[in-house]
Design a protein around this nucleic acid. Structure first.
Lengths: 131, 131
DNA sequence: TCTAATTTAATAAACATTATCATATTAGAA
DNA sequence: TTCTAATATGATAATGTTTATTAAATTAGA
């Protein structure tokens, strides 16, 4: 993939496989999820390598680490400002693509330089409400 | 403490110690933090008990579990709608007590019944900006 | 093609959290 | 107040996730 030539990392088959899996992925996978998916095509890949790659991609701004799941990290290739609906019933996570970030007055921010706004809406999805 | 009589749990010294430590606490402590603090006064307490107690208090709505730290759970006795400033430099977490939750249109919510809104502002605190 | 720097894979280690279960304690009944 | 069933605790094992270690393999540029 020529598109990854200029991001300043060595291109390895493992990295390309992870990038390819993540591209456009809306499932907010964990490291383990990514490992399992990539392993199908590159059975020699190691879980440690997936962790290494995710750390590298995070530093390069190509993925975002999400703290939406208390038991493990989740990763999102969408690094734009967007938010998440999280179902407390089934754990499903759905993107809200529009940016509804509120404007917080300077006085409330106490000198912080805000870089990123995360908004999570916890609740029950349609399916879980019906149960 | 008479105030805890009617919350539907047995009152034990361990539970009272944890409740007392958490009351009004703005430090967003982890289970380990709580364990260390309570251990000073009740040296016989076990870390497993602290986890049990936190789980119970969460079920009773007396504490909130926060997913602001990827490496561990943090707990907050303030269960009202409030938000957090998180410093990417030093890890400090500061409350924003006012409720700036945006109103998200029904169409964006896709049938979700939203129970709780979490807003996290990641950035650099005054101290870390100066470095 | 060669080589220095980097990456990978396998595995061990480190943490945080949960599970297990015998013993101790609580709260309400008698 | 005493008794007892239900529940909580504490010690420790087990689990699951993530990080550290390091020899061997691979990449990218000279």
């Amino acid at each position: 993939m020529q598109k990854y030539r200029n991001i300043g990392i060595k291109l390895t088959p493992q990295r390309l496989a992870v990038l390819e899996f993540l591209e456009g992925n809306k499932s907010h996978p964990s490291a383990e999820d990514i490992y399992r998916a990539v392993k199908n095509r590159y059975p020699m890949i190691s879980l440690a390598t997936v962790y290494n790659i995710l750390e590298t991609l995070k530093e390069k701004g190509l993925v975002q680490e999400l703290n939406i799941d208390p038991s493990k990290k989740r990763f999102d290739p969408d690094t734009s400002s967007h938010h998440h609906l999280i179902c407390m019933g089934c754990g499903k996570v759905i993107d809200i693509s529009m940016d509804y970030s509120p404007h917080i007055p300077e006085t409330a921010i106490q000198g912080f330089e805000v870089k990123r706004v995360h908004l999570e809406l916890y609740g029950l999805c349609q399916d879980c409400r019906e149960k």
